[in-house]
Design a protein around this nucleic acid. Sequence first.
DNA 1: AAAACACTGTACCGATCGGTCCATTCTTGA
DNA 2: TCAAGAATGGACCGATCGGTACAGTGTTTT
Lengths: 189, 189
Amino acid sequence: MARAIARRDDLLPVLAETFREHGYEGASLSLIATATGLGKGSLYHFFPGGKAEMVEAVLAEIEAWFEARVFAPLRQADDPAAAIAAMFTTVSDYFRSGRRVCLVGALSLSDARDRFAETLRRYFALWVEALTGALVRAGHPPEGATALAEDIVGGIQGAVVLARALDRPETFDRILVCLRERSRLTAGA
Amino acid sequence: MARAIARRDDLLPVLAETFREHGYEGASLSLIATATGLGKGSLYHFFPGGKAEMVEAVLAEIEAWFEARVFAPLRQADDPAAAIAAMFTTVSDYFRSGRRVCLVGALSLSDARDRFAETLRRYFALWVEALTGALVRAGHPPEGATALAEDIVGGIQGAVVLARALDRPETFDRILVCLRERSRLTAGA
DNA sequence: AAAACACTGTACCGATCGGTCCATTCTTGA
DNA sequence: TCAAGAATGGACCGATCGGTACAGTGTTTT
């Protein structure tokens, strides 16, 4: 009985969604098996380290995704202001207006944080760093750029929490619009 | 073997801290038993509904705490601006500069959200509502007050996430200072 | 053709899960 | 004084947990 349909990479999106919906503890192996349509044997073939390795793989893919679509554009864009604006659109799509949880943020609040501490830290550090650079190149004063970048990245995370708790996706979008506004150059900033 | 030391109310802070540190799934009954120093028999005596009832009780106490220390002052203060400033101090203390997770926010991101949906929703709704009122009475234009209140409440939640992920409590404090600044009246707002 | 290897489902493992039950002990009011 | 009830710890329950072992099937290489 072997059907070589699945490749490891194809599993990652399903795994990611499962961990997003159920968390680290809540995503049991049987749940994962059902979601992926694979038996435990196959799962442990691809991820000998079990759930921990699955999460690490998922986090690595998430980081790669953001690196390609968000961080790198922020760093390299000829037009930093446009790159920042694009970031908000990309992120809003990615989080489905707050209906989709940020796995990195959710893990950061859970007891699994310590286990994946370095990976979680790096994700947010890279984001803040890339955004800070773009803000500066867009004309923001360097002294306040990191603070503003942290406000924005943190604000996005908070928007996910709030929109989910209130069950109001439009709140997510509204907060993102407001954050985008703050990223634009004003007399005060 | 009976020592009538514990009253139900005395258990709530311990339960709250346990759920904060381990989440709903992660806080097993044996863990709770160890943390409280009570056997399962006693726990089920106080909370016949098991873990779910424990969480509901904890959430009720949290809401009562915020009602007394945050929401009510925001609603009733003679000096709304001072009440808003006090809110930031209270909240910063409560969350220990981001070292302590917001249980309501953490549950909102977890798969336990649906189970406690109404309680989670009400907590944030009450907060946003009370803050909106205070902002208006402090002189903010009513059209933008709810949006600003959502920015602030969401911003606080995001600050917890970010500070925990980055392992930098000072980031939490810095974001709160920035939010407090935005709550003050400026020419633009 | 056949050996090597990748992949698969499942039976099974000990541990732990949430929850029940109950004998016992302490407290309290009559 | 003593029955009633609150509170307690722990044995116990079936279910499920994460993880292992393995025999079987498909594909690839030789």
